[in-house]
Structures are given as C-alpha cells and as structure tokens.
Amino acid sequence: MATLFIADLHLNVHEPAITAGFLRFLARDAQQADALYILGDLFDAWIGDDDPQPLHANVADALHQLQQRGVPCYFIHGNRDFLLGKHFATQAGMTLLPAEQVVECYGRRILIMHGDTLCIDDAAYQKYRRRVHNPIIQWLFLRLPLRLRLNVAAKMRAASQQANQHKSQQIMDVNPQAVQACLRKCAVNTLIHGHTHRPALHRVMTQSGEAQRAVLGAWHEQGWMIKVTADDTALISFPF
C-alpha cells in the first residue's frame, strides 16, 4: 500500500480536462491508497463555502465517496484556496490540517505543507500573505455579497499574475535556509510540498545528515503525485 500526496490542481470551470483527470484519479489511484493528502491549491480560487458553483459540489461528492470507501483525505490550505472552510470540508469528508503538519508514514516522519511559507525571499508576497491571513480581514471578506467577492478575487488574481511577471525565478522559489530551519524545527528528514510548480526530488544537507525535499508539480497538461511507500518516495506524472 501507499500514501499519496497531490497539490496545485487549480481546479476551475475553464479547464474541465483537469477536473476530469482529478475525478479519474480519485476513482482509480486514490482508491488503492492508505490515505490522500492534498497540499493546497486544489481550487484556483475560493471565495467562500457558500459559492454555489456545481464544480465544488462535484468535487466534494467525489472526495466524500473516496472517504466512504475507507481512504481518509487530508487538506492543507494553499495560497489560492486559503478560505476553504469547515462546511466544504465536511461535505467532502476531508480533515483540515494546519499550515505545517508532521505525519507518520510507515515508520517515517514526514513534514508536509503547501510551500509558500518557504518562499521568504519574495517579501511582497509574504506581506500579502500576512494580510489575507488576518482573521479579521477574512471575517469581513466572507460577509461581503458573493458578487463583490468574485470581483475582488478576480482583481487580486490579475494583480498577482502581473506582479509575478516582474519577479525572478529565484525569488519565487523556496529559500534553502528556510527549508533547513523547518526540517530542524520538526526533527524530520523528509519534506513534501507544492506551490512552486517545480516538480523534483532534492537532496538537502542538514546538520544531522542528508534529507529529502520532494516538490509536487502543478496539474496543467498532466497530473502529478508523490507516492510514499515503506521503501520509497516516488514523484510520478500521469496523463489526465
């Protein structure tokens, strides 16, 4: 058996092939797993659990069916769907996890996260993240009319895309010192995350020896997962 990790699907109504690929993944690969962990950005945007998009209901139903088949599903918020709440999680049968979580997999301790908190060289993004994660700002936003929230979210996405065009790839990647600090703080030698859209298995040298940083890919033209077994950590791509 194996535990599966995915991230950065960015599901939205404009890319139905990705949604179809995800639903097939849940009906096939995921049903054979011991557990499924979604490490953020399952959706391209989330403006509240009260958004009546059929896409959300379809995804929740498929995840709930997976849970009913005995495969638990866990979710860490990403930078696009950080407002996903308890109501949707209950509908989907998912367990919400904190931004950083150490999980036990076949005798191994693995640190999992979305990954954006490791990109500390991007000062502008980190300032934005602190602002939108303010509970008061979130409370106020979620009480705006749905149509206004849609407009605000669209403007924020456009501003983010424009800002990223002027940032170097290095700034938007993880900071090596931040990675080592997380590994040391949590006393682990394996880290799995998404966010950067740079799938790879990295060797990381720490004070206590060699560690591994496994990075998930984004679901654009193919799907990505990390498959952890008792003997291996594999990064796998597959067609939709």
Rank of each mutant, 00 (worst) to 15 (best):
residue 96 L to S: 06
residue 21 G to Q: 07
residue 115 G to C: 06
residue 157 R to V: 13
residue 125 Y to G: 02
residue 5 F to V: 02
residue 89 A to S: 09
residue 171 I to W: 01
residue 105 C to S: 08
residue 142 L to A: 02
residue 123 A to D: 00
residue 33 A to R: 04
residue 23 L to M: 11
residue 199 P to L: 07
residue 53 Q to W: 10
residue 40 G to L: 09
residue 84 L to K: 03
residue 162 Q to W: 06
residue 126 Q to R: 09
residue 182 C to E: 10
residue 94 M to H: 02
residue 141 F to Q: 05
residue 47 I to P: 06
residue 72 P to E: 07
residue 9 L to K: 09
residue 214 A to F: 05
residue 100 E to C: 12
residue 94 M to R: 01
residue 231 D to H: 14
residue 20 A to N: 02
residue 166 H to P: 02
residue 169 Q to F: 00
residue 191 L to F: 14
residue 153 A to I: 08
residue 234 A to F: 00
residue 58 N to M: 05
residue 147 R to N: 05
residue 175 N to Q: 03
residue 89 A to E: 01
residue 152 V to E: 08
residue 63 L to R: 07
residue 209 G to Q: 00
residue 190 T to L: 09
residue 223 G to S: 12
residue 84 L to D: 00
residue 232 D to E: 11
residue 61 D to T: 07
residue 96 L to E: 04
residue 181 A to R: 13
residue 228 V to R: 01
residue 198 R to I: 08
residue 153 A to W: 10
residue 33 A to S: 11
residue 173 D to F: 02
residue 233 T to P: 05
residue 29 D to R: 15
residue 171 I to T: 15
residue 50 D to T: 07
residue 138 Q to D: 02
residue 100 E to T: 11
residue 79 N to E: 00
residue 98 P to W: 07
residue 83 L to W: 06
residue 59 V to S: 12
residue 144 L to Y: 05
residue 46 W to K: 10
residue 41 D to I: 10
residue 12 N to M: 03
residue 164 N to P: 03
residue 113 M to Q: 13
residue 208 S to I: 03
residue 11 L to H: 00
residue 88 F to D: 04
residue 228 V to K: 12
residue 147 R to I: 08
residue 116 D to S: 03
residue 52 P to Q: 02
residue 67 Q to H: 10
residue 224 W to R: 05
residue 175 N to W: 01
residue 69 R to W: 00
